[in-house]
Simulated scan of single mutants.
Amino acid sequence: MGEGYSSKTLDHLGLLSRVCREFDIAGQIDKLIPPQSQEQHVTTGQAVVAMLLNGLGFVNQRLYLVSKFFEDKPLDRLLTPGIAASHLNDDRLGRALDALYAHGVSTLFASIASQTMQQLGKQPKDAHLDSTTFLVHGSYNSDKGAETVLHLTHGHSKDHRPDLPQVALQLIRDHYSGIPLHMEALNELQQ
């Protein structure tokens, strides 16, 4: 009797996985943020790639559902052999997000963008700066004087809703290729 065959769905995730592998996104992150323990099955870089894949395939789901998303996916092809869906649990992904925050996400983003441009052989000469605001709903501690990096504020809103709390995102991209070079979250946009 021959070996049994099985199939798993890749959808569009194979393309994103290949791009992440081509530019060694996980490896770049792991060089800057080394593993926190020898027992972890998933590095911070691998967790980020998993969250990217998840974000393009299972939008607006909570971290605890990420492992469920990957149950029918060929993780040995999308990420790395040896990683099981159960390894991509909310605890590991949350610790990866904490490590990214501790390192500084804007610094990390700029480093990855710089490496990507070098790999592509591009030297940006012109750049385009754009910004946008995101409305935030709910109760946050910015008003209570707690130590926070980003304070949600009321102010100039591109959605014309100055009555709601908001946060701003600023992005600088290469003018010709459109590749993002720098990204930073801001408290508010200046008029």
Rank of each mutant, 00 (worst) to 15 (best):
K8V: 13
G45E: 00
H151K: 13
M51D: 00
Q40H: 02
F109I: 05
T9R: 15
V149P: 08
A26N: 02
P162S: 08
G45T: 09
A102H: 11
T43W: 09
V42H: 02
H151P: 01
D130K: 08
I83Y: 08
K122F: 01
S139K: 11
L169Y: 06
L164C: 03
D174N: 02
N60E: 06
F23V: 14
V136C: 12
A113Q: 03
I83V: 11
L181Q: 04
M1R: 15
D163K: 13
P34H: 10
P165V: 09
L100W: 01
S37V: 02
V59S: 15
I33N: 01
E188V: 10
A146G: 09
Q38V: 10
A84V: 04
L75E: 04
P180Q: 06
T148Q: 14
L16F: 13
M1H: 15
T133F: 00
L53K: 00
G155E: 00
Q46E: 13
S106W: 01
V167C: 04
P165M: 06
H156P: 07
D11W: 10
R95D: 01
L79W: 02
A96N: 03
Y176F: 15
D24M: 08
P74C: 01
M117H: 03
S157F: 05
T132E: 10
D11T: 15
